[in-house]
Design a protein around this nucleic acid. Structure first.
Length: 265
DNA sequence: AAAATCACCTGTCCGC
DNA sequence: TGCGGACAGGTGATTT
């Protein structure tokens, strides 16, 4: 689930509901060691009686400053992770690997069904990003920088857009969307792209991400003429006006890509 | 060295 | 109904 727009939503959600409240306790489920990089006891001891002070997002990562100098929480959500505040059993999500209990009796769950996410106390955001080879956030790019970067790459355009070391934040479904809106085939070799293609990609990258953030990354709220809402509906037609072609899917680097064979060349 | 594939996980859906 | 396999909005390690 979580690409840049989703994680941006988690950030706002946390800002709205989780800042400046004392953490009274922390609990874990039995599989937590798959996602929690620190020991349970260290993590708990460390965060007890602290507060979340500030939240930042970089690409698909969240960084939470706490009331402790020089330490922060890093969160990544893998394919299935999300954050959820709750205060009744009914609202508790299904795979809460870590649960923060606040002094006002609110709870925050870090839920991660497939355990492909990560949660960790780190010393520096900058150091973390560098060590993990994570590039500049997609929304921080200027057109010129974006074009310079892409020009020097090889291989399929879709792979390049998804590579976090170049551009952080774009994953499988948003890369499909910005390729669709740019009318570029996902398997197009970067070397075959022209200046105007790069310009189009840049424009649509910013547009798609910003629009998705506005819609809180909820598929039902995304514009009807986007390809994202069609990808899980069998035999969908291209949402472009005057196009009646069926959307096709292919594998690129073992990820499924959806595209219109007529509109995307 | 960069680009493509594999391995890591759980849960659901689809076809025999 | 039951079972096997494919697959899901990700990524670090391994192979080409």
């Amino acid at each position: 689930m979580p690409e840049l727009p989703d994680v941006e939503y988690f950030k706002k959600y946390l800002k709205r509901k989780g800042l400046n409240k004392k953490i009274k306790n922390i609990s874990f489920d039995s599989r937590v060691s798959k996602v929690l990089e620190n020991s349970k006891s260290y993590f708990k001891k460390f965060l007890k009686n602290k507060k979340f002070l500030k939240v930042e997002r970089h690409g698909k990562h969240l960084f939470i400053n706490i009331s402790e100098k020089d330490k922060l929480i890093e969160m990544h959500f893998g394919m299935t992770g999300f954050l959820k505040f709750f205060n009744s059993k009914k609202e508790k999500p299904e795979h809460p690997r870590v649960i923060f209990k606040f002094s006002n009796e609110d709870y925050l769950a870090y839920d991660c069904q497939r355990l492909l996410g990560e949660i960790k106390i780190i010393k520096s955001k900058e150091k973390y990003l560098k060590e993990h080879n994570i590039g500049k956030d997609a929304l921080e790019f200027k057109e010129k920088e974006f074009i310079e970067l892409m020009k020097n790459k090889k291989g399929y355009i879709k792979s390049a857009l998804m590579s976090q070391k170049d551009i952080a934040g774009i994953g499988n479904i948003y890369s499909d969307e910005l390729l669709f809106q740019s009318k570029i085939h996902p398997k197009k070799q970067i070397s075959k792209l022209k200046e105007k293609d790069f310009k189009e990609l840049y424009k649509n990258m910013i547009k798609v991400l910003k629009e998705a953030i506005k819609k809180e990354a909820e598929i039902e709220k995304l514009p009807k003429n986007w390809i994202i809402p069609k990808r899980h509906i069998k035999n969908s037609k291209c949402p472009n006006k005057n196009c009646t072609k069926k959307i096709k899917s292919i594998k690129i680097n073992s990820r499924t890509s959806f595209y219109c064979p007529k509109c995307q060349k």
